[in-house]
Simulated assay, not measured.
Amino acid sequence: MKYVLPFHFVFEPMIRLAVISFKEDEEFEDFEPQFFDDPINGRGIRLLRYRKNGKVDVYYESGINHDESFSVGAGIADLKMTHFEKNFFEVTKNGLQVHLIFTDKQGRKNELKVIETSKRKRPVPLLAPIGGRIETPQKLFFVYMYDIDFAYRKTTQIHCSLDERVLEPATLPLLMNGQRTYLTRYCSKLTIVALNSNGSKPLCFDAIPGKIVIHDETEIHCDAQGKINQIQIGQGMYSAKLHFPGGFPNLLELPESECIKGSFDIYISSNKITEGQYQLMKIAEQVHVELNQFKKWHPGRYPLAYKLLVTFVKIFKNWPTKYSWKGKVELKEPSLMDGQWQNRLDKNA
């Protein structure tokens, strides 16, 4: 039996990342080094510089495969392959270690250096609201950090400069593990999951009702009535799934001109990230699809400082509730999907 589903659910690999925030700089709010080592992204460092106006600069090594559809913030400003004279980025048992030196498009020498010698680090899992500020999202993606931590001020040296101008690191007005910290956070274990990236195809496969089928490394659970209970990628700790409490219908079996509604849950590593609603309407050989009403992430039992962070910081409170997707699936051979994400962006987030 052939199935067509309006979902493209995949991992986006990344090894580690850090975000170093600055206070009262005239030009930049954050620097975000990322390290990749996979067939999709290549191997090396990509650095994002977040500007005060919402635009983002992207600098990357020659070993990185740049994605032309990459979108972040209010759009891309500088985009340049570069040579990092210093390109060290590690996370050790004593915390964050970064040293990057490169020349930007304006001809300025950029240096970012973070050396942490902290002890008794206590990282926690956290869903990062990284997509919350994207004005024109190309996908809905979730960055789940298994071991996020903050740099302790007492045992961390941070230096960032553009030529002679020094950027002062921002501090966090909360004690983390009883320590004063910088607003510098990082992780070395994370899972990134993307849903319905622009230009992606629908999920098409053959299955027998009541059986589990493996299609392109995706595990799909079909119930005895022919509906889909679950779509899963990965295994164990590094896994993610779309779960449908009432089952998701095969688009090929939908009745004509009847509105079908239901709900779904998104899990990463057995942790529920969010839930949402879907709506389907088949008209001739085309199915109109809406995904919306996403719920905010609830972290469960957490240290007090993290509870305050996700409760009162607006971007955490709203993520991912502002996202919605409208699209169409063509049922003729080959089945095609076209859709667009919207983010009802809060300019004050």
Rank of each mutant, 00 (worst) to 15 (best):
A74I: 09
T171R: 12
L172W: 00
Y59A: 04
H99R: 13
P129F: 04
I64A: 10
F70Q: 09
T103D: 11
V143P: 14
K109P: 03
T181S: 02
P173M: 13
V91D: 15
F141A: 11
I134T: 13
L172P: 00
L47A: 13
G107L: 03
G95V: 12
N87A: 13
S118Q: 00
G178L: 01
L183I: 06
L126H: 09
T181Y: 00
P173N: 14
F141S: 08
T184P: 08
K154M: 11
H83F: 06
L127A: 15
H66Q: 15
L47W: 12
T184S: 10
V124M: 14
S62Y: 07
L112H: 08
D163I: 11
A77Q: 14
G63A: 08
D163W: 08
K113N: 05
G95N: 12
R165T: 13
P125F: 04
R120C: 07
N53R: 01
Y146P: 05
I115F: 15
A74F: 12
Y60E: 02
T103Y: 11
A170F: 02
Y60H: 02
E68Y: 02
F70S: 09
M145N: 11
L79I: 04
P173F: 13
R51A: 01
D67H: 15
L47K: 10
T136G: 05
Q157Y: 08
M176Q: 05
